[in-house]
Nucleic acid binder design. Structure first.
Length: 197
DNA sequence: CAGCAGATTGACT
DNA sequence: GTCAATCTGCTGC
């Protein structure tokens, strides 16, 4: 395979189909570079949040607060927020200015800087199986909300990894039962466990 | 202004 | 399986 290693272009994020973008983020690489330390991993699980029409979204009904303001910006930046007062959840903002679509990154397969990630997690066993632990391993905090995803701090890259449809499991999203019918939407994508390293 | 619920995790019964 | 930890924002008095 060719050694493809490109930072994703803004056109990738600014498409109008947030569900498709969530699907295409599988296999992409998320990289952070804090204090000169690089950590990265391959994205293995995502969820789409379709803005104003999506009951599970923070921007449901056009809700707009200081916290979710980054969601209304043009695609290509990070939206990080605090959940339950403890966990930092990392989202990729998509679509154009004024349309608050975003993709939640729930899990990844660690590739670079494993010792650093274990240290940040304070655990010998590195798990990145949840959205909260993933941000902890990468060192992402709410301070990074609004950060440009082509910047030096947080970046998404295409390493030429192709995820074929047969390896993708599509299903309803997690932890949003309160959203009624919207909780059943097939907005969750993950790489089949049998296909992980 | 008090109370509660949430895109979660980890420790304990 | 149950439950506390702890911040943001909405609801209701």
């Amino acid at each position: 395979m060719n050694s493809v290693l490109n930072t994703l272009p803004s056109s990738f994020y600014q498409g109008t189909d947030v569900v498709r973008i969530a699907r295409e983020l599988l296999g992409k690489v998320i990289v952070t570079n804090f204090n000169g330390i690089r950590t990265s991993g391959i994205i293995t699980e995502t969820e789409a949040y379709a803005g104003a029409t999506d009951k599970a979204s923070h921007a449901h009904g056009g809700k707009r607060t200081a916290r979710n303001e980054p969601m209304y910006a043009a695609g290509g930046i990070a939206y990080v927020y605090l959940c339950y007062g403890i966990h930092h959840l990392f989202n990729v903002v998509t679509n154009v200015t004024g349309v608050p679509h975003a993709v939640l990154v729930r899990a990844m397969h660690p590739t670079t800087g494993l010792p650093t990630m274990k240290e940040r997690r304070g655990s010998d066993t590195l798990t990145t199986a949840g959205p909260g632990t993933l941000t902890q391993a990468l060192g992402i905090r709410t301070d990074h909300s609004g950060t440009d995803l082509s910047s030096g701090l947080i970046r998404l890259e295409d390493h030429g990894i192709t995820v074929t449809p047969s390896h993708v499991i599509v299903g309803p999203r997690i932890g949003i039962d309160y959203a009624g019918p919207d909780a059943l939407l097939p907005y969750r994508f993950r790489i089949a466990p049998s296909h992980l390293l």
